[in-house]
Design a protein around this nucleic acid. Structure first.
Lengths: 239, 239
DNA sequence: CGTTCATGTAATCGACGATAACAGCATCGG
DNA sequence: CCGATGCTGTTATCGTCGATTACATGAACG
């Protein structure tokens, strides 16, 4: 095995296992059985090492996902691309922080590759006339929003305990850049939207009613019942 | 002037002027005319210093913006809040990175305050029946997307040369969480109107939920409670 | 055989976060 | 007035880290 490859592999392992999110060049050298000058001759500086390591982790992850690529419907690819992005962040949080958080002056190739993949999907959508926004701003919108939610999930897990937010933001962004889908989903979901909105309105009001019409116990029970309403399914129309 | 305050002020200046985005405790001490042990007795460690510094910069910025707060329309506040967030990131990039990029183990108070401000606006919107999503996930969606686009603008200015992307993402997210049409701005009774409308919607839905989440007795009690809500008074009479 | 160049090693530099140890000095109870 | 207490300031130092210098080794080549 190439010396450079083994160093990268060792660095990737240490990075994934790191609790603080960073790795010292000394630790990499000791674990790889090399001396520091060797590392610096191979990668120039620490940033070169980390950049190569991130690229390696990214390539590995992409390889494991490459089977599910290029479906017939580019909208499906757009969605799965978002979800893969988020999943990568959750699987390799330290590598992800290095990719998208400040710290590395040079943009890792993995970032450019992620942008390229997204841009390709959006170009396919544009060719089919399904983009409401030019591909370039659309790429920036999707990329920035996706990294935002992924970084939030990774760096502030207590503030963002539910990773379903990723789906919500995803659909919000996608609805904004895509023209209306072939099948109008607005039939059954409009009812549910109205219902959810009504529940939200009332729950926000419960604490502000004067004079309070409910005892605390009643209010708590009412609040609990209200939360159950939106989750009741509508008889899904044909799909 | 308080010694602690001068140190924070000096640290804020050095942070804003820093090219690399971080400041050494030694530089702060030298510029403030104190010794390192003093700094460590004041702030515990470097993270304490940076956290306090970030809070200071945030408070200063918020003070300069506080005049434009609390407009009549919470939708306007939501939009201006997003734009202020992005503007703060562009004005104080280093402080912003410290707030929302990994690095600080402790979440600065400025972050929690930003979340609280956003949550308050969303709660006002929910009380008026203009939220399609509960306030909590809405807060997370807006916050994560906003930090995503702001971090992108700040850390990768070459990849995101046009800050108009912030507006595009903003409107995309806001369209996803707000109900259509500001509609009738009928003044003070908007809240009660929204509440009555919500009650009507839910009472009409109660018989159509499948599977039925409530027993007949529960449904009857819930229905009765719902009818009591619109007859309650206004939350805060004076404003 | 001597030159050249790549590879490996020991030792070290400078910056940094953090702390120990000590000195000055004020306050306060006795 | 005095000693104890506690805060403030200073010097010196520790350990870690990124990065480099200087030197040794060995193979390739003319």
């Amino acid at each position: 095995m190439n010396a450079r490859a083994t160093v990268i592999s060792v660095a990737a392992r240490l990075l994934d296992e790191s609790a603080t999110g960073d790795v010292s060049t000394r630790a990499v050298c000791e674990a790889a059985g090399i001396q520091q000058p060797v590392l610096y001759r191979l990668f120039g500086d620490k940033e070169g090492l980390l950049s190569s390591t991130v690229d390696h982790i990214w390539d590995q992850y992409l390889e494991s996902k490459r089977q599910a690529e290029k479906s017939a419907d580019p909208v499906v690819d757009l969605r799965s691309g978002w979800d893969s992005h988020t999943a990568f962040a959750l699987t390799h949080p330290n590598a992800y922080k290095l990719m998208f958080a400040p710290g590395l002056r040079t943009v890792p190739q993995a970032v450019e590759e992620a942008i390229r993949i997204l841009r390709d999907v959006l170009n396919r959508l544009a060719a089919e006339g399904r983009l409401r926004v030019p591909p370039q701003p659309a790429t920036q919108m999707v990329m920035a929003a996706n990294t935002g939610i992924a970084l939030a999930l990774v760096t502030r897990p207590t503030l963002y305990p539910d990773q379903g937010v990723s789906t919500l933001v995803r659909d919000a962004i996608h609805r904004a850049i895509l023209v209306e889908a072939p099948g109008a989903e607005s039939g059954g979901s409009a009812v549910r939207d109205a219902r959810t909105s009504a529940v939200t309105t009332l729950r926000a009001s419960l604490g502000e009613l004067t004079p309070e019409p409910f005892t605390p116990v009643e209010a708590a029970l009412l609040d609990q019942w209200l939360t159950q309403i939106p989750h009741s399914g509508e008889p899904e129309p044909g799909e």
